[in-house]
Measured scan of single mutants.
Amino acid sequence: KAKLLVLLYAFVATDADTICIGYHANNSTDTVDTILEKNVAVTHSVNLLEDSHNGKLCKLKGIAPLQLGKCNITGWLLGNPECDSLLPARSWSYIVETPNSENGACYPGDLIDYEELREQLSSVSSLERFEIFPKESSWPNHTFNGVTVSCSHRGKSSFYRNLLWLTKKGDSYPKLTNSYVNNKGKEVLVLWGVHHPSSSDEQQSLYSNGNAYVSVASSNYNRRFTPEIAARPKVRDQHGRMNYYWTLLEPGDTIIFEATGNLIAPWYAFALSRGFESGIITSNASMHECNTKCQTPQGAINSNLPFQNIHPVTIGECPKYVRSTKLRMVTGLRNIPSIQYRGLFGAIAGFIEGGWTGMIDGWYGYHHQNEQGSGYAADQKSTQNAINGITNKVNSVIEKMNTQFTAVGKEFNNLEKRMENLNKKVDDGFLDIWTYNAELLVLLENERTLDFHDLNVKNLYEKVKSQLKNNAKEIGNGCFEFYHKCDNECMESVRNGTYDYPKYSEESKLNR
């Protein structure tokens, strides 16, 4: 008799109507990190870190770059004969040098303040090359056809396309004075040089004057150069050297050249137009028929994500570079809930034993079982409120962090190594801060989002509990077992918050 009662009780308990509160689960393989956990499985997430590029040089917003090819900045601007293909260059979106560009200054020497000139050019998007001192009329008392084997072109001695090597005419090199007034309405880049012979005999042979000088002056520039005559090792078949100089001439300003020898005179100059998204990159990537809004030396990035880990040097509207390998923000729920887990921000989770793959029309909802059958029903209101809140948060985070910009490298010469090392340390410090901030932001927001979901499920549970009161009992896994019969209409009233407690209280009292 006792065995019969136990079996009867078990049958009745199993047959009781139930309603459970749960949440969506799926077959997603997404994982995120939080402050407290690593690799948390979630139903949905968004990636904030771009880690792919196309490996190509592309047009930037429809404008092609200027590819210097086998030449570098120095060779292009001075007019190395091997860089003749660059003479027609007028406009570009950015400038590309190759790491091993070999054609710079063909006659050995240095372009002074080269690093600063590169910085200036990094904001130039177009130029006009014009004859600042016409070759045939500007130097009537001097020979202007100086050439050298060091600047050979097609097997013949030649010289820079933008400079003139002035030497004596006959047996004399009379003092020369020439000036140019900038009437271009924009900055003009003027380049010139000073020749330093290897011996007094060479000085006399070329310029006749043993104590020659070169003077260059404008409103913002004033220097006097004296040739340094000295024996030097042979470089590119030359014992002599040429140093090259430049200045930016403001609109309306005048530049005056005065010399008694050794002047490498300007022939062509450049009127410059600035462009905020221009820059110089060093890259071996090849040019393709493609378009982008962000270019790196590795390749083009076409992404609206706020961060990238491809390269710190970028041109155009680019994500911020960070050292992170993963920045994924959760938008959905835990896919593998932890039992009795309390989140960092106070939300209680884990009283549900598992997510439901059968509930596909919402994030949170119900599963019921009664004599009429069983089924899932999503709670659309709480789901939609959660979707709206999380979507707004993700968009806000992306908008705040998605300050796209150009980031170019800084140039230092060989004598500025300590400054370069200090600059690298400062840049590394800023990069570490950006990386830390980005990672911390994602970790915190992921923790908040998961706790937010847990709290929403808990609130749904409490909503049902407050309606049923003692007409049902909690069975410990997020479910309630009714003390009365609850048909589909009754189940719907529980879900929509209109459950009639008094209607079922007498039946429940008897069954309790």
Rank of each mutant, 00 (worst) to 15 (best):
4 L>S: 07
5 L>W: 15
7 L>C: 10
8 L>H: 00
11 F>P: 04
13 A>S: 12
14 T>D: 06
15 D>C: 08
15 D>S: 12
16 A>V: 09
17 D>Q: 08
17 D>I: 02
19 I>D: 10
20 C>G: 00
20 C>S: 08
22 G>H: 07
22 G>S: 15
22 G>W: 07
26 N>C: 04
27 N>S: 07
29 T>A: 01
29 T>Q: 06
29 T>R: 04
30 D>W: 08
30 D>L: 02
33 D>E: 13
35 I>Q: 09
35 I>S: 06
35 I>D: 00
36 L>M: 04
36 L>C: 13
36 L>R: 14
37 E>R: 13
37 E>W: 12
40 V>D: 05
41 A>N: 03
42 V>K: 11
43 T>I: 03
45 S>Y: 01
45 S>T: 07
45 S>C: 06
46 V>E: 05
47 N>K: 11
47 N>T: 14
47 N>H: 02
49 L>C: 08
49 L>P: 08
50 E>M: 01
51 D>T: 14
51 D>C: 06
52 S>I: 02
53 H>W: 04
53 H>P: 12
54 N>W: 06
54 N>G: 10
55 G>S: 08
55 G>V: 04
57 L>R: 12
57 L>P: 09
58 C>I: 10
61 K>H: 15
62 G>K: 10
63 I>H: 10
64 A>L: 09
65 P>K: 07
66 L>I: 13
67 Q>F: 11
67 Q>S: 10
68 L>E: 06
68 L>S: 10
68 L>G: 13
69 G>H: 14
70 K>P: 15
70 K>R: 10
70 K>S: 12
71 C>G: 03
72 N>P: 02
72 N>H: 11
73 I>W: 04
73 I>T: 06
73 I>R: 01
74 T>W: 00
76 W>S: 07
76 W>P: 01
77 L>A: 08
78 L>R: 11
79 G>Y: 06
79 G>H: 03
80 N>I: 08
80 N>H: 15
82 E>L: 12
84 D>T: 13
85 S>K: 07
85 S>V: 12
86 L>R: 08
88 P>E: 11
89 A>R: 05
90 R>W: 03
90 R>E: 14
91 S>Y: 13
91 S>L: 11
92 W>E: 03
92 W>F: 15
93 S>E: 08
93 S>N: 02
93 S>R: 01
93 S>C: 10
96 V>P: 03
98 T>Y: 03
99 P>C: 00
99 P>Q: 11
99 P>N: 10
99 P>L: 12
100 N>E: 04
102 E>Y: 10
103 N>S: 11
104 G>R: 06
104 G>H: 09
105 A>S: 12
105 A>T: 06
106 C>L: 02
107 Y>C: 02
107 Y>E: 05
109 G>A: 06
109 G>I: 03
111 L>G: 00
113 D>T: 02
115 E>Y: 11
117 L>E: 02
117 L>V: 07
118 R>L: 06
120 Q>T: 12
120 Q>I: 03
121 L>I: 15
122 S>L: 06
124 V>D: 00
125 S>P: 00
126 S>I: 04
127 L>C: 03
128 E>M: 14
128 E>V: 09
128 E>H: 13
128 E>K: 04
128 E>S: 13
129 R>L: 05
130 F>I: 14
130 F>C: 06
131 E>G: 01
131 E>I: 09
131 E>V: 13
132 I>N: 11
132 I>Y: 09
133 F>N: 03
134 P>T: 10
135 K>Q: 12
135 K>V: 13
136 E>C: 00
137 S>H: 07
137 S>R: 09
137 S>W: 10
139 W>T: 04
141 N>E: 10
141 N>D: 06
141 N>L: 04
141 N>I: 08
143 T>W: 02
143 T>H: 06
143 T>V: 00
144 F>P: 01
144 F>I: 08
145 N>S: 08
145 N>V: 09
146 G>H: 12
146 G>Q: 12
146 G>P: 09
147 V>Y: 06
147 V>D: 09
149 V>H: 08
150 S>R: 04
150 S>P: 01
151 C>I: 02
152 S>R: 13
152 S>G: 14
153 H>S: 13
153 H>A: 15
153 H>T: 15
154 R>S: 11
154 R>C: 01
154 R>D: 03
155 G>T: 10
155 G>E: 14
156 K>L: 09
156 K>H: 10
160 Y>V: 03
160 Y>R: 00
161 R>G: 06
163 L>W: 07
164 L>S: 07
165 W>C: 09
166 L>H: 01
168 K>R: 14
171 D>M: 09
172 S>N: 13
172 S>F: 13
172 S>V: 15
173 Y>N: 08
173 Y>T: 06
174 P>K: 14
176 L>T: 14
177 T>P: 00
178 N>E: 02
178 N>T: 14
179 S>P: 01
180 Y>K: 05
181 V>R: 10
181 V>K: 08
182 N>D: 07
182 N>G: 04
182 N>H: 05
183 N>Q: 14
183 N>M: 10
183 N>P: 00
184 K>L: 14
184 K>Q: 15
184 K>F: 15
185 G>M: 09
186 K>F: 02
188 V>C: 06
190 V>F: 04
190 V>R: 05
191 L>V: 15
192 W>T: 01
193 G>R: 00
193 G>P: 05
194 V>D: 05
195 H>T: 04
197 P>E: 09
199 S>R: 06
199 S>V: 08
202 E>W: 12
202 E>Y: 05
204 Q>I: 15
205 S>M: 13
205 S>T: 14
206 L>V: 08
206 L>T: 05
207 Y>N: 05
207 Y>K: 05
211 N>R: 08
212 A>D: 01
212 A>I: 07
213 Y>L: 01
213 Y>G: 01
214 V>H: 04
215 S>Q: 15
215 S>N: 07
215 S>P: 00
216 V>R: 05
216 V>E: 09
216 V>Q: 06
216 V>N: 04
217 A>P: 01
217 A>W: 15
217 A>S: 11
219 S>N: 14
219 S>R: 15
220 N>E: 08
220 N>A: 14
221 Y>L: 10
221 Y>F: 15
222 N>Q: 06
223 R>H: 15
223 R>W: 09
224 R>C: 10
225 F>D: 08
225 F>S: 09
226 T>V: 13
226 T>K: 11
226 T>C: 10
227 P>K: 07
231 A>F: 15
234 K>R: 14
236 R>D: 05
236 R>T: 03
236 R>A: 05
237 D>A: 09
237 D>S: 10
238 Q>A: 10
239 H>V: 07
240 G>N: 12
240 G>V: 03
241 R>Y: 05
242 M>A: 00
243 N>K: 10
244 Y>I: 06
245 Y>Q: 05
245 Y>E: 07
246 W>N: 05
250 E>K: 11
250 E>V: 11
251 P>A: 15
252 G>P: 00
253 D>K: 12
256 I>R: 01
257 F>W: 13
257 F>L: 15
258 E>A: 03
258 E>V: 07
260 T>K: 10
260 T>C: 00
261 G>S: 01
261 G>F: 00
262 N>W: 07
262 N>F: 11
263 L>D: 00
264 I>L: 15
264 I>R: 00
266 P>H: 06
268 Y>P: 00
268 Y>W: 14
269 A>S: 14
271 A>M: 14
271 A>P: 00
272 L>Q: 01
272 L>Y: 01
272 L>E: 01
275 G>A: 14
275 G>S: 15
278 S>C: 01
279 G>E: 05
279 G>F: 03
280 I>L: 15
281 I>L: 15
281 I>R: 03
282 T>C: 09
